[in-house]
Structures are given as C-alpha cells and as structure tokens.
Design a protein around this nucleic acid. Sequence first.
DNA 1: ATTTCAATTATTTTCGATAATTTTCATTGC
DNA 2: GCAATGAAAATTATCGAAAATAATTGAAAT
Lengths: 226, 226
Amino acid sequence: MTLTEKAYEALRHDIIRGELAAGRPLRLADLGERYGMGFSPLREALNRLQAERLVTVESLRGFRVAPLSLDELHDAVSLRIVIETEALKASIRHGDDVWASGIVSSLYALNVQAARTGPEADIWTLEARHHAFHRALLAACNSPWTLEFFERLYAATERYRIPVLLAAALPVGRDVQAEHGALAQAALDRNAEEASGLLSQHYLRTVEDLAAAIRSSEVSRRASAS
Amino acid sequence: MTLTEKAYEALRHDIIRGELAAGRPLRLADLGERYGMGFSPLREALNRLQAERLVTVESLRGFRVAPLSLDELHDAVSLRIVIETEALKASIRHGDDVWASGIVSSLYALNVQAARTGPEADIWTLEARHHAFHRALLAACNSPWTLEFFERLYAATERYRIPVLLAAALPVGRDVQAEHGALAQAALDRNAEEASGLLSQHYLRTVEDLAAAIRSSEVSRRASAS
DNA sequence: ATTTCAATTATTTTCGATAATTTTCATTGC
DNA sequence: GCAATGAAAATTATCGAAAATAATTGAAAT
C-alpha cells in the first residue's frame, strides 16, 4: 500500500468521524506531522477527497474539511431515497440466495451489536455493521454507478450521524432495529414496494431525528458561547 | 489557476474526447511532455480523475484511462434516468422564470447549432450546447448532490457518444431536435409527468442508438483485425 | 525451445528544496 | 483611533532528484 493510499484512508476516516472538524483548515505541515509523511502523498490524497466533496480547496490557499449544513443533510438524504429505493427494487429483482444470506447475516450482526450495553457497546462497530447492512440490501442491484453513489452519500450522511450518536442525542421512543428487521423481511419476501417504502420511511425518520438533535445542539452551543 | 487545475482540465478534456483512448496507460514522462509540466501537478490531477472514475490506478503500476464497456453505458444511462427524472420534477416544482428562460435560450442555441451544415457544423459546439440544455432543465432542482452526479454521469456517457458522433454512425430516421423541443415544452408547461416521461424515452432511444452503433463498429473492427 | 535468474532499464513514488503567493503584524501617515 | 503600507513569516505549489518497485532483456541451464 502506497503512502498516498494510507493518507487517503486516514484522512477520510478522521474527517468522517469528526476528528478533523468541519471547516477546519488542513495545513500540510500539520498533516505531515500527524500522519508521518511528506507533502506529496498528502496532497494527492487531499485531491482525491476534494473530488469526493469531503474536502474543499481554494487555489493557493489550501485545503479545508468540507463544511456541514442542515441543507446538505436534507439534500443528501433525499437523493439517497431516490437512488436507494430504486437500487433496492433492482436487488430484489436480481438478488439470489447469496444476496439474501448477506442480508440475514448483516442484520444479525447489527442486532447483536445494537443490543450490547456497557463496554461492549462500541459505536464504531455499530456504525460499521449498520453500513454493512444497508450495503447488503443493495448488493445485488448490479449497478456499479449506483453502488459508488451509495458509498458517497453514505459517507456524507455519516458525518451528521456520528456526532449525534456520540452525544447520545437521539430520541428514545424509536425502535430502529425493528425498522431494520421489517425492511430486511420485506426484501427477503421480494416485496419491492413494501421494502422501498420502509426504506424511505427509515431515512425520513432518521433525518428528522438527526436534524432535531443537531438544531438543539446548535442552539445550546450558541447559547453557551454568548 | 494552478498547474494542477490546468492538468485536471486538460486530462479530463482529452479523456472525454477520446484523444487519450480508453485503457491507455498514462505514463508520467509522456504526460509531462504533452502538457509541459512536472510530475506533481499531473499526479494530483490524476488522483482527482481517479476519484471521478475517468482514470484507474494500480499501486506502483501507474494510471490508465478508464475502460469503456456496453455494460457501463447501460448502467450509467439507467441511473441518469432515475436521477434526472426526479431532478426534472423538482426543477418543475421550484423553477422560476430565470430557470424557464435558461431552457428557452439553451434550446434555441442547440437548435441553431444542430441545423448548421458544412464548416459551421462543429460537433464540439453541438456537444457543449447539448450539455448546457440538459443542465438547464435540471438547474432549478435545488440539489447540489444531484447536480454533481448529473455532471459525473454526463461525462461518463459523453465518452460513448463522442466516437459515435465523430463516425457519423447514428441512424438518420430520428428527429432528436423534436425530442428536445417537446421535452422543453413539457417542462415550461410544468407538466412534470409528461416531461420526465419524454426525458426517459429520449435517453432510452439514445442508448439504443449508441449501443447499436458501437456494436456494429466493434464487429467491423474485429472483422478487419482478423 | 523453454525456463530461470541476474542485470539492466523503465517507471512510479516520495522527499527535500525552491519559487510563488498569502497572511500576519508592526509601522507610518492621516 | 484607524486605514494604508510594507517587511517578515507562514503556507502552498512546483520542481528535480533520490529511492523503491516493476518490467525487460539476455545469458545460462535444462
């Protein structure tokens, strides 16, 4: 693995997790220190991330972590619904038993992790399994372009979910695992309309919960800053 | 403008127009000669293009122009239909008179160029105006993510249309300008269902014509090679 | 003829240095 | 006080060279 690839993965990881905060300038000297490499591989990685909209660049003024906004969250989720409901229908049409068992196993792993409490309740494992479950649903859509855009939008929306998960700021009255279970069942039953409807609802509820949590934390942040 | 930006635009231009053929290895020494710059800005540009799937990369073995395939053409067009029909409906919902006049003027410019014959019949101008017209239709969708994916897929499909246009290999019995006109009219009439139906048909016809032209040229190429 | 291996050549990857540009900050003039 | 100015510092962008790796060649062995 080349240093450019290492830099790309490390930067992407740190941006998505918020360890490099939105809007923060990415100075090459700092990054070279942080990741232990020279400018060339860092600049190459930053150019990739710029093309993926995780980083912004201004000529001769360097790179920054891409900003976050409620507008972008709504935009990304709306487009996820358009793309993923179609991809889910295609997967249901084309998927074989390998696809179906991928859904079963990823759902099981997700449920196990969601049920864990105490020191085993690791949000990074939960997040990885959540991603794997949603990817498994679409895996048989037979469209590389769709899967690429799924990954792009998943990363974009993950940046909003992670700070909310870390703050444990989600409402308690919602049974997300039941939603995942119903969605998986509809997909396994090859009920395309039901499944895509459940997927849309799942995302619409999530975006509302996230937006509410973010708005209230913005309010409290501004109140404490004044 | 930095050299990285110049390299990015020049490489993107040359790849989309097929001046750098699909699959061709992109050797840094050659590119440095071709574009008159050192390795650093070229590698940064190639990394951007790799993130956009116009270039492939293999560790320690360099970059290549991304390959073309009929499967990818069908995949890209199918996803364009999903994304753009939705974007067109949103534009029709949100678009104001600035949006409408953008459609009118870009359609007019496209029709003028399509009607030109002889030395004025420049396929690059035609292509630029075709792009501008399709962008104008979606311009009011109010979704940056949608517009980004539109540009990505437009570039991806342009790579298939250009060699067919250059070979003048499209069937003559089709009135593409009439299709554009009807589409624009439906959009201006705020008839979302009609407009998105016409857009789908327009793309499905185009992909069939392109696929037929490419298949027949593949057949003739293989026959002459044997 | 084919395979193996070492030496050579070609190519990519990375670094360190330099040039170009922006940012900072103290100073001057109003 | 405050804007304008200009030097100094910081930072990015680019180059050229060095290091690392891959590909090629040709001789030797089978």
